[in-house]
Amino acid sequence: MIRLLPILAAAMFLASCRQDMHDQPRYKPLAASTFFADGRSARPIPAHTVAEDQLNGDDTVHTGWKNGEFDDTIPVPVTLSLLQRGQDRFDIFCSPCHGRLGDGHGMVAERGFHFPADLADDRSRRLPPGYIFQVITNGYGGMGDYGDQIPDVNDRWAVVAYLRALQLSRHATMDDVPTAQRAQLGAAQ
């Protein structure tokens, strides 16, 4: 018996190396599952589920439509912070293809994706905001929908508002710059 003691001690020591606490019987986000047939622990939303936010899903803010037409105004208050948020989202989600200037020369387009239209050309400038919102939400042509990547409708309107600012800036002349700031602009160039 005494001779077995060291072996017993060694066994107990090794048993303490189990990883039960590290790997507990629960799922981490997006972990694989052997329980569900499709192998996912993240379950898809059952059909016909209505999320709390979707209860208002058919008004202008959620669709871009107003009285059977695309809204030609932006239905949320346009503030400086909204524009800045829009710039932020535009640079993340739109600029890879459309370019930071919206001219259609983003890096992904340069590498072979077909060139999107210039977002500051005459046609794009005439598009009603509701239409642009709807394109972001549902996609258009070769462009996939961005509703999942920009889930907050306010963020999508922020992008629309920023795009309007971008269009203005692309067609701005020196006369649009306040006199006090013109010298500053010259210095930057």
Partner: peptide, 13 residues
């Protein structure tokens, strides 16, 4: 990212 996000570009590239 979901497969869809990859496909935003890799549908063509």
């Amino acid at each position: 990212p979901a497969t869809k996000i990859c496909m935003n570009c890799h549908s063509q590239m």
